[in-house]
Design a protein around this nucleic acid. Structure first.
Length: 274
DNA sequence: CCGTTCCTGGAT
DNA sequence: ATCCAGGAACGG
């Protein structure tokens, strides 16, 4: 899926394109992607609703509407595409929102893992998909990050698994976990309990540096991810280790290695990361 | 903790 | 044919 930088890019696009518009109709072709309400009730409630704001929490998009908060999770392959006027329909288009100015917002998802949830009345913080999220990685201070790491100091799990744990810090996925740990000089497989004060500070610093640069570059595009206008991001050109197996480490020249950690492809330089 | 599962498709 | 893929819930 889009991780924090990709979702943030889409959010900023949607602020410019659909905030202020009203949904006049919805073509929902894959009812199972709606959580909470039935598909019929979801459509009934959102028809006629005005989009008031486009927000984000971790990797979740939150469209504030006059009918409640619309949560959208893109998971691995979901895309939100804004069509100002007639655009060709892509394969795997599962939902189309028709807006009152003739434009459309389309949800396209090859793997069908993404979901929508309309929250009409309850507190957002009680929603299951939001309730257990940790702090935003770009907001957390060094002292707070250090405190959270120290709380996990009994854990033998890898530092990479912890960074990807959304209840620890919310928004980092497989790409940026590898990139952050390379930039911080820490091996992804290192147990959390072995982190030094200096390494913790380096990881905190690189989370900020790597994620904000990726946002500036409008995200990383491989196969699926594009922004809300259908354009690819640019951060794939800046990746140091992710999917760079066998290529020379940009710092020391040694070939980048790949292992499997927690079921995920994990990329690193064994000279630059300890 | 790890593996499996939800899906479809591209790469090897 | 087999493995892999920006996520995350679930079960053992």
């Amino acid at each position: 899926m889009p991780e924090l930088p990709e979702v943030e890019t889409i959010r900023r696009d949607l602020v410019k394109s659909i905030v202020g518009l009203t949904i006049i109709d919805i073509d929902l072709r894959l009812p199972k992607l709606i959580r909470g309400y039935s598909a019929e009730e979801f459509v009934r409630r959102l028809k006629g609703a005005k989009v008031l704001e486009a927000g984000r929490r971790a990797k979740m998009l939150i469209l504030k509407t006059s009918a409640g908060e619309l949560l959208i999770h893109l998971k691995m392959s979901g895309r939100l595409i804004y069509c100002p006027a007639a655009c060709l329909e892509e394969k795997h288009t599962h939902v189309i929102f028709f807006m009152d100015n003739g434009s459309e917002l389309r949800f396209v998802d090859m793997r069908k893992f993404g979901f929508f949830r309309l929250v009409a009345d309850s507190e957002l913080s009680t929603i299951p998909e939001l309730a257990n999220l940790g702090p935003e990685p770009l907001d957390i201070s060094l002292s707070e990050f250090t405190r959270l790491i120290n709380k996990k100091k009994t854990s033998k799990r890898s530092i990479k698994a912890l960074l990807m744990d959304q209840s620890f810090v919310a928004g980092i996925g497989n790409i940026y976990a590898d990139e952050v740990l390379f930039a911080a000089g820490v091996m992804p497989s290192r147990p959390v309990l072995s982190m030094t004060e200096g390494e913790t500070a380096a990881i905190h610093h690189q989370i900020r540096t790597v994620l904000s640069l990726a946002v500036k570059n409008r995200g990383t595009s491989f196969s699926q991810y594009v922004d809300a206008s259908g354009q690819t991001g640019r951060h794939q050109e800046q990746l140091k280790v992710y999917r760079q197996t066998g290529k020379s480490c940009p710092r020391c020249g040694k070939p980048i290695e790949r292992i499997k950690l927690g079921g995920r492809g994990t990329h690193f330089c064994s000279d630059c990361q300890r």
